[in-house]
Design a protein around this nucleic acid. Structure first.
Length: 580
DNA sequence: GCTATGGATAGCCTAGCATCCCAATGCTA
């Protein structure tokens, strides 16, 4: 789809324009980029069917941007964009991915120090040239270096959220070929790791040549690293490396087990095979020369005398031992989720009305939806004040009454995503919080506090009798920002003591808690909730990424409160009983 | 540059915070 390509260009134009005097044009381009990114229909189809006029019907796209889309679809280029790039030939996206560096700073650094990319930026910072510039200083330079070293750690990896849909699409394409007997993703994609290095695909077929020919000629392939009958590797336009392996039908299960990994897990399973006088490799399980299993993965595990282990926990973190004892956790499933308690509506500047979100949730099959808009401290997000929360309540009550009248078994709950201010107080008065069905609290500012201060700040908020959920507890943004400094042992203990539910934020960029913390929370008996944090109806689907993450942290249905029926959930959301 | 209102023009995504330098700027949510 051209949507994403165009969206990327318009984002970049917006950022380039931000370095100039233009005040509102950057917002216009950003809006257009956002709309294109969220657009379900292929923009080139819209153009073919209705021309430029049809393009202008897309929200946020007017005459000028429609012309640029037209130009891109016809020529593959946008002259205006090229001219902007010529004026400031820097890798803007790369530079502003460094926390603390924005478009303006990037431009100044280019003009003064000829910084064009991340490498130049690091060099300039290391040689202390940045601190010498007017308007900059030692602290800025130090922060830049810190952010760069964080970025390096995740370099070359993609978010699962960006990769999975593409993998699913490729699988669909393959399934149309009748010679494909079995197909599955393997590797870290199948284990649903939060970031992915490269994609492994596995197919069984009697006609490897046809499969491999199709694979290397897929649209979007820009480089073929290798092509053979059993293995081919390509790189896509987005920089994603995909390996495809073709195996015979009889070995598909064994190969799937082998290529799913992790390496550590496989070492463990192979040891078990050895202890039973068997040999396990990617072709099957063998007793001497006789193959005893291999066709499907389940029989591979069973032939070793252990339970089949869900891919998400194949990390050699105790799953093999648990499996040997027949005590694997029954991991939470997407189907267990009965509702979403973290979503944003048009009240706080989101795109969709409450009723639209509710309808989407009914379609998913949820029993309930919690609207939790931002509150007033976050002006940029149009945070609601006490009065607006009250007005919103009236709308929600009306909608619930309608559901009841028409015998729809669905309820909208009213929450709010309040802000934990620097001193640990919230930005909404308790009298207003009291009237909500539940309160989420989260840190949205001043991330760089001392460990001690941040710990005190969060725990104080958790003590508020109305706070029930701690949103995105560690504040990290994958590949972008590390978690804030805090004493997590103390915070987890506070969650346990004060009955605060820890969120597993399902946004692919957050996935916060991470799997390690989920497992700690589970072992401590702390309840968790998986929330989408959707700002757009399409993001409700992110729930699945939260479920993957929960599964990676060994969470079971009973650990997650939004697997409960509405009645039970309401009971859990009740005011804290404990004296704080 | 887009949208809404009214047919050309106003309004839009702002406020707190850190940093750098002691008032202003740019970044972030």
């Amino acid at each position: 789809m051209k949507n994403q390509e165009l969206s990327k260009i318009f984002y970049e134009i917006a950022n380039l324009l931000k370095t100039e005097e233009a005040k509102f044009r950057p917002y216009a381009y950003r809006k257009a980029a956002l709309e294109l990114d969220n657009l379900e229909k292929d923009v080139s189809k819209i153009y073919i069917q209705g021309g430029k006029d049809a393009l202008e019907k897309i929200p946020g796209i007017g005459e000028s941007i429609a012309e640029k889309i037209e130009e891109y679809l016809r020529t593959g280029k946008i002259k205006y964009y090229q001219e902007l790039k010529k004026k400031t030939p820097i890798k803007m996206e790369e530079l502003i991915s460094v926390e603390g560096v924005g478009p303006r700073m990037a431009k100044i650094l280019y003009e003064k120090l000829k910084v064009r990319n991340l490498k130049d930026l690091e060099k300039a910072a290391k040689s202390h040239k940045i601190a010498e510039l007017p308007g900059f200083g030692e602290k800025t330079e130090k922060n830049i270096l810190q952010s760069i070293s964080f970025l390096k750690k995740s370099k070359g990896r993609f978010l699962l959220g960006d990769v999975l849909a593409k993998v699913e699409k490729i699988k669909e394409e393959f399934k149309r070929i009748k010679e494909v007997e079995n197909i599955s993703e393997a590797g870290s994609v199948r284990r649903r790791k939060e970031t992915i290095g490269d994609v492994d695909l596995l197919i069984s077929t009697k006609n490897p040549k046809k499969i491999m020919d199709f694979f290397v000629s897929m649209p979007g392939v820009v480089k073929i690293w290798g092509k053979g009958e059993t293995k081919s590797s390509v790189r896509t336009r987005q920089g994603l490396e995909i390996d495809l392996r073709v195996v015979p039908k009889e070995s598909f299960g064994a190969a799937l087990q082998y290529f799913t990994g992790s390496k550590e897990h496989n070492i463990g399973t192979r040891k078990i095979a050895m202890s039973k006088g068997l040999k396990l490799n990617e072709y099957g399980v063998f007793k001497g020369k006789k193959m005893v299993a291999g066709k499907n993965e389940r029989e591979v595990y069973e032939s070793l005398g252990i339970q089949w282990i869900p891919p998400e926990i194949r990390e050699d973190k105790g799953e093999i031992e648990a499996s040997l004892k027949g005590k694997l956790p029954e991991l939470v499933e997407l189907e267990d989720i009965k509702g979403d308690l973290h979503s944003h509506s048009s009240w706080d500047g989101g795109t969709d009305n409450i009723i639209e979100i509710a309808k989407a949730c009914i379609d998913i099959g949820y029993q309930y939806l919690g609207i939790s808009d931002h509150t007033k401290f976050l002006r940029i997000e149009h945070g609601l004040n006490e009065k607006e929360l009250f007005q919103q309540r009236k709308e929600i009550d009306k909608l619930n009454a309608k559901f009841q009248m028409s015998n729809v078994k669905f309820k909208i709950l009213q929450g709010a995503e309040t802000n934990i201010l620097n001193d640990g107080s919230l930005d909404i008065k308790n009298e207003a919080l009291k009237k909500l069905n539940y309160v989420i609290a989260g840190v949205h500012s001043s991330f760089k506090m001392s460990r001690k201060e941040m710990t005190r700040r969060i725990i104080k908020a958790m003590k508020n009798p109305y706070v029930k959920i701690l949103a995105h507890p560690t504040g990290r943004l994958i590949k972008q920002r590390d978690e804030y400094l805090a004493d997590w042992d103390k915070i987890f203990k506070a969650a346990k003591d004060f009955g605060v539910v820890l969120e597993i934020n399902a946004h692919p960029k957050r996935l916060d808690l991470n799997e390690r913390n989920i497992r700690i929370a589970k072992e401590m008996g702390i309840k968790m909730i998986i929330n989408s944090d959707a700002h757009h109806i399409s993001q409700l689907e992110n729930m699945r990424f939260g479920v993957f993450q929960a599964r990676r942290g060994w969470a079971e249905k009973g650990d997650i409160i939004n697997t409960l029926s509405l009645e039970k959930l309401i009971n859990v959301l009740k005011r804290k009983e404990v004296e704080i």
